[in-house]
Design a protein around this nucleic acid. Sequence first.
RNA 1: GCCCCCAUUGUCUAGUGGCCCAGGACGUGGCCCUCUCAAGGCCAAAACACGGGUUCGAAUCCCGUUGGGGGCACCA
Length: 494
Amino acid sequence: MTEIKQPARVRFAPSPTGHMHLGSARTALYDYLLARQTGGTFVLRIEDTDTKRYVPEAEEELIKGLKWLGIEYDEGPDKGGPFGPYRQSERKEIYSKYAEQLVESGHAFYCFCSPEHLAKVREAQQANKESLHYDGTCREIPVEESRKRIAAGERFVIRFKMPKTGSTTVHDHLRGDITVENRVLDDSVLVKSDGWALYHLAAMVDDYLMKITHVIRGSEWLPSLPLHMHLIRAFGWPEPTFIHLSVFLKPSGKGKMSKRETAEAMKDGHSIFVKDLEELGYVPEGVVNWTALMGWSYDDHTEYFSLQDLVEKFSIDHLNPSPAAINFTKLDYFNALHIRNLTDEDLANRVKPFLEAASYKPSMETLIEIAPILKERLPTLGDVVDMAGFFFKDAISYPAEDLIAKGLEKTQCHQILTETLPILVGLSGIQKDIVEEPLRELVEKSGFSAGQVFGILRVAVTGQKVSPPLFESMEVIGKDTVLNRIRQAIKLLE
RNA sequence: GCCCCCAUUGUCUAGUGGCCCAGGACGUGGCCCUCUCAAGGCCAAAACACGGGUUCGAAUCCCGUUGGGGGCACCA
């Protein structure tokens, strides 16, 4: 049945330059799923060689985000492992060594071109409508001469010596073979003049040293795959399986999320940042289910998945190479779905902080009691405040006109309330099965509809026009409070 | 400007030459249920970008066009 798979070693290699977004989350998810389902290993590696863009809090946010999503890694900067260190900033010497090796073998060369010269070359190329590339000034300088210049203190970078003729064929697991002409490839910088390796070199070296078998990354890396392949082949290393995931587009499908769209999304309670999603009341189960399905599918009808389901059913062979527009409405759907499947106690625990943030003091007991009637109507955990805040208020307030049901006069509404009061007072309790029958009889006698009568009572008891079911709500609030609130409503209409 | 990738309903997608006058889901519209809101049930509208091939037969293979996306840094 299940084919035997080799344990995969996969790595999630984010750079700590900002908030963790959905694209990263999905890459990490797929990494994790592949590792888990093959009995392999998931590695977290921090690519922090760009000191200019480094954001100190980013790594912590990343780790927190992964943890929240339930994506556990086996090796990483805070966990250690046999192939550390797992921060590239701690591996500088390793890259230098391999860069030297490339120069020795003739696959790379020292370049002394100044940034000004490079800029001028680029400008000229732009003016001539040529493709932008290194002009080859230092390509043929003999290594001996270069070493002398370096010894004399000249600043230099190390560039890859790309073949000028022929073509290169690379393989992407999603797209098959891709062939490019070598003449369009550039002599890319591998090591900067400050001695730090660039992504191209660092990532390939680390993937090799960390024995990575599958490289899952964004499609923005596809254009540099030929370079990476040349690097790997120059070293004579085994080629990992490359999987380039498509990018996420903004909801309209036209272009990727911009600053503007991000702000726009935030306005209606959505975000592409993992930490925001948590704060907005999304549950990780929902976010995981939703992101998993953007770019991957199981069959033509199954789409509810827990993390464990995904571990079992995910396959890198069913990935979709085309870009996907983010659909927040569907996130809401998945989120509601997973909230409904939470146990009462779990929901109570998760909803509590949101109530507390709105300065309510909810008890676990009440929370668990209302969980069943809450579950079905919470798109997000945060919605608990509007839906159920009244359970935890000592006093409620609302405009008097809310007590006037559609199609009824003020006096009629007042009458309903005054007639309800003695009925409730006379009952032995406030439980649903005690209250419902007499109140339905009242509706019958009044000649009004159940919607009108219960609507008035709903506002009187909860202060809201929209609430969980009336009888269940009264039961939780308790008889005395219910009676008091009805008396308050009666006064309000006088 | 040059290079690469992608292309099924509004959106996410199933589909790997006949099972497809294209299936599922979100969303949308309608109906049912109903104390509000949800949830649930039923029904409906909605797609193979275009043009050429190949083939007995194409959403599926090939070429071109168009559209969209990405890349062309001493960023990742």
